[in-house]
Write a protein that binds this DNA or RNA. Structure first.
Length: 460
RNA sequence: GGCUCGGUGGCAGAGUGGUUAUGCAGCGGAUUGCAAAUCCGUCUACGCCGGUUCGAUUCCGACCCGAGCCUCCA
């Protein structure tokens, strides 16, 4: 059995992955702050860690995968105030939309989806613990984590407190002892949502929930913690500080961070305003195309988002589905955990491009082989690989015949035209046959004559 | 200013101290009533300068260029 190797942000190297408990893995991935639609950049970690989840499930008998929902945050508060509604109206609406969008990308639901507002108690007690142990202090109504109280603060992001001082570009609040100190708990005004605490009515700082929820659901030390690169600092650094100082121990054994989705070579982000929402893109492309595009580069490399990228993803899927379509009548019972080339590629730090190459090899075999055993093996590779990658989930005929929008000819109309053309061909009236083909093509339908008759698909 | 990561063929994108990545596009052929799909063949590579080595795209150093973090952000 191939061993799993994963790059660890902490060490800066690929490491052999061994779960702390024999056959059981715990993974936590930072989820969305639910105040608006997820953009395609937000979807990258979801899809990447969904692949990892699938690989882990194939390899280990128990995988506990938690992805949080941040449903208390200043941005949600602002959105709610603008709309004149309660924050829960905003957070519930966008939690639902997020789930729909991610499901459309074939991302499996995590084992647990903890919400911040359901863990306020845990956050308060974690904060208390940090105050008691001298790692946090109260100042001007806030409770702050004292970064100088932690010996190796900065170890994850590879920075030193002194260096950070030099580059501080932000006004330092005067209630902080050190510029790097961050908020654990902050006061709420009357109009802001808040919870009673030993420090008065307030709400948690944004790093706190993950520490508290990891502890509550996955325990003191987890195997894998993932998220986007931009979370390394300050979010994960601070999470680590909170958890390590409050509870001691390892906290996280493998830190994993995906690179960004870029737009014209520049990071896609809400603050830059160059985003494309998943929802908008789903109106133009099948979810599988978006997913395929998102994993067409290795997760630690930047991915430039473009029409061309999506068209390439579509064409890769077309060729895999096309190979399967040739053998569509065979029963399928793939085993994703089988020791296939796709599996081995993914075991090497999720090398999805190498996995794609193996998928293409399997498809080529299906297209040209006449050996039943070989065909069987290739189908297993392709379908099993598809399960690990979260692709090829549709029926091949459905894939080619689906229209992204409702417009166009119905399947029945197309079949009728095909029958008319077959009759014309039987009469050797090729002129009529060709005019039918051309008419269909003008409506975006491509005919393919094969040994077993004519099949059709919708062109892109 | 500090820290991190990267520069591969027309494009996308892996990998390796000496041997084909892969896909798309291009070109030539096969197949087809015509197509499409498919198959076969084929062309374009490893930022720049040094060093180590029998041999470097791959290791080391300098340089140039790009991206990111240090601030909400996946």
């Amino acid at each position: 059995m191939a061993e799993l190797r994963l790059y660890n942000t902490m060490s800066g190297e690929k490491e052999v992955f061994t779960p702390q408990h024999d056959d059981q893995v715990s993974m936590y991935v930072c989820g969305p702050t639910v105040y608006n639609y997820a953009h395609i950049g937000n979807a990258r970690p979801v899809v990447v860690f969904d692949c990892l989840y699938r690989v882990l499930k194939a390899r280990y008998s128990e995988v506990r995968y938690a992805r949080n929902i941040t449903d208390i945050d200043d941005k949600i508060i602002h959105a709610a105030q603008e709309q004149g509604v309660d924050i829960s109206a905003v957070s519930e609406e966008f939690t639902e939309k997020y789930r729909e969008d991610m499901a459309a990308l074939n991302a499996l639901a995590p084992t647990i989806e903890p919400k911040a507002t359901e863990h306020i108690e845990e956050m308060i007690s974690l904060t208390q613990r940090l105050v008691e142990t001298g790692h946090a202090y109260e100042s001007d109504g806030h409770v702050l984590f004292a970064v100088e109280s932690m010996q190796d603060y900065g170890a994850l992001s590879g920075r030193k407190l002194d260096d950070m001082m030099a580059g501080a570009r932000v006004e330092v609040a005067d209630y902080k002892r050190h510029a790097g100190d961050f908020v654990l708990w902050k006061p709420s005004t009357e109009s802001e949502p808040g919870w009673d605490s030993p420090w008065g009515r307030g709400r948690p700082g944004w790093h706190l929930e993950c520490s508290a929820m990891i502890r509550a659901h996955l325990g003191e030390s987890i195997d894998i913690h993932g998220g986007g690169r931009d979370l390394i600092f300050p979010h994960h650094e601070n999470e680590r500080a909170q958890s390590c100082c409050a509870y001691g121990g390892d906290f996280v054994r493998h830190w994993m961070h995906n690179a960004y989705v870029d737009m014209d070579g520049e990071k896609m982000s809400k603050s830059l305003g160059n985003t494309r929402t998943v929802r908008e893109l789903l109106g133009q492309y099948p979810g599988e195309v978006l997913r395929c595009a998102l994993i067409s580069a290795q997760y630690r490399s930047p991915l430039n988002f473009s029409e061309a990228l999506l068209e390439q993803a579509r064409s890769a899927l077309d060729s895999w589905y096309g190979a399967l379509r040739r053998h569509g009548s065979l029963p399928d019972v793939p085993t994703p955990g089988a020791d296939t080339a796709v599996y081995r590629a993914l075991m090497d730090d999720l090398n999805t491009p190498e996995a794609f190459a193996a998928m293409h090899t399997a498809a080529a075999t299906l297209n040209k082989s006449t050996d039943a055993a070989e065909i069987d093996r290739a189908r297993g590779e392709l379908l099993g690989g598809g399960q690990l990658l979260g692709l090829l989930a549709s029926d091949p005929d459905m894939w080619f015949q689906q229209g992204v929008s409702a417009e166009g000819l119905s399947a029945g109309e197309i079949e009728a035209q095909i029958a008319a053309r077959a009759a014309a061909k039987a009469d050797k009236d090729y002129q009529l046959a060709d005019s039918i083909r051309a008419a269909l093509e003008a409506d975006g339908v491509v005919l393919e004559d094969g040994a077993a008759g004519t099949t059709w698909r919708r062109g892109s």
